Computed example of a mutant assay.
Amino acid sequence: MIAAARKAFEAEGSGFSVDDVVALAGVGVGTFYRHFRSKTALLDAMIAELLDDLSRLIAPEVDAADAIFAFVHGALRSAPAKLDLVEALESLGNATELQQAIQRLRQQVRGALENAQEAGTITSDVNTDDLLALVSAGMTASARSADQPLRAERIAAVLCDGLRTRDQGTRSA
């Protein structure tokens, strides 16, 4: 049902209706309300899924710094879709599922950041809140840009270069 909601959101923005979602999903309204108590709950679940997608960018089996750099690049590339959903949800309210997804993302970022800092590949003067604030600002700055993909990559490269310890040199991930 979330996939159908994403399609409805892409077509109609936050003005999509529950009827649009159930038609795209091929289910009845009762099925919708058994899964989601409201359209706001559906939007919340959509954003939680997108945040979980970002969390999965931080793969534990790769070098911690590379995982952070993949997260930064992935977050900035996907900025328009995520910011549109966040704006829609902010206009309607907040929910627990979103807060839980944010906590999962924070834990993933914190773990990879601390591992990279212990390995000496990312500067130790940045904490999880700093990194997430920088990524958020980069997402906002690139999301509405006419040259969004290029701008997102430039911002991500600058951010990643700034995260590297001085002895790591500069290079784009």
Rank of each mutant, 00 (worst) to 15 (best):
R144E: 09
T121R: 13
Q108K: 13
E61G: 05
A25W: 08
D52M: 08
A67K: 04
A143L: 04
A59T: 04
A8Q: 03
L83I: 12
Q103K: 11
E114F: 04
F32W: 09
D125H: 15
A75C: 05
L150K: 05
G28P: 04
G93R: 04
G30V: 02
A116H: 13
N115M: 08
G93M: 02
K39D: 11
L43Q: 06
P60C: 02
R34Y: 15
L134Q: 15
G74M: 09
E114N: 05
A141T: 02
R77I: 03
M46Q: 09
S78K: 06
K39Q: 08
K7E: 15
T31G: 09
N115W: 02
A59V: 00
L24F: 08
G15R: 14
F71C: 00
E97M: 04
A70T: 06
D129L: 02
A41L: 01
R34A: 14
S142A: 09
A67D: 10
R6N: 14
T121G: 08
A137G: 15
A67L: 01
S14D: 15
L24Q: 12
Q100Y: 08
L134T: 11
Q107M: 06
A95I: 02
E12K: 13
P60L: 03
I102H: 15
K7G: 06
G74E: 13
I58H: 10
S142C: 11
F36V: 00
R110G: 03
A133W: 14
F71G: 01
I122N: 11
D53H: 13
V135N: 12
H35V: 00
Q117A: 07
E118Y: 13
N94P: 00
